[in-house]
Structures are given as structure tokens and as C-alpha cells.
């Protein structure tokens, strides 16, 4: 299952539509980290609303992606983590340290906008 990546203004948005096989997740992360450079995006939003499980593997993969995105000069935010999934992630002992999270897509965009503003770069392209 391929995850479509949309570009909206200065942001890349990847909305995961259903449970992902390991390879698909890895492929998505590869695609995002190359595209963030190519498209000179300032932010990446990964929407995980449709994920009913986030285990050790998927969490690690997303955390690594966040690190790469940051190294490329952009911000990543994960949006849409379900309450039950959040509990499971925490109880497994996983830490999403260094990864920003927001309630949903709208909040994710607001978060990235806020970041851009506070770092005084908002004069750069948005839409």
C-alpha cells in the first residue's frame, strides 16, 4: 500500500490510510526524506489517524525519520495518534523524544506555522 504525499504550501503531508506493512512504512520514510530536500519543504506532517497499532518498530522508524528531517532543516510533526494507541506506546516503554505531536492535521499545520513564525522565517513561501 502506497501512502500518497501531498505538498501544501511549504509542507509535505503524508496521510497513512490503513495499517501499514513494515516495508511500506520504510518506503514512506525514504520518500519523505528525499522529497523534503527536493521540494525544500519547511515541514513534514505524518498523519497516523488510521494506525491502530504503533509498535516498537514503527515508532523507531518514525523517530528516525524525524531526526533525518531535522538534519535537512525542516520540522516534522506526527498528528492523529489515537488515545488507545498513545497509551499502548507509553506502556510499551517507547519514548517519542524529540518528535513533535499534534491532535490532527489542522493542529499540525498550526503548529508548523507557529514554529515558522517564531523562528522569524514566515516571510518565506506559504501557499
Amino acid at each position: 500500500m502506497q501512502v500518497p504525499i501531498l505538498k501544501q504550501g511549504a509542507y509535505l503531508i503524508a496521510s497513512i490510510q490503513s495499517a501499514l506493512e513494515d516495508d511500506d512504512l520504510v518506503r514512506l520514510c525514504d520518500a519523505l526524506s528525499t522529497q523534503v530536500g527536493k521540494s525544500r519543504a519547511r515541514g513534514v506532517i505524518v498523519d497516523v489517524t488510521a494506525l491502530d497499532v504503533m509498535d516498537s518498530f514503527s515508532t523507531r522508524t518514525l523517530v528516525e525519520l524525524a531526526t533525518i528531517i531535522r538534519l535537512r532543516g525542516a520540522e516534522m510533526v506526527i498528528v492523529g495518534i489515537q488515545p488507545e494507541v498513545a497509551v499502548a506506546v507509553v506502556r510499551l516503554g517507547l519514548k517519542l523524544e524529540g518528535v513533535s505531536t499534534a491532535l490532527d492535521l489542522e493542529e499540525g499545520i498550526a503548529y508548523l506555522d507557529g514554529k515558522a513564525r517564531s523562528s522569524g522565517k514566515e516571510k518565506n513561501d506559504r501557499g
Binding site: 488515545p83 498513545a86 507509553v90 506502556r91 519514548k95 505531536t101 499534534a102
Partner: peptide
């Protein structure tokens, strides 16, 4: 403590 962490994952 876990509740605090889980809350953060929801963006709050």
C-alpha cells in the same frame, strides 16, 4: 506519569 506522556502524544 504514563498519562502525562500519553497526553503529550495527543499534542496536549
Amino acid at each position: 506519569v504514563q498519562t502525562v506522556d500519553a497526553t503529550r502524544l495527543l499534542g496536549a
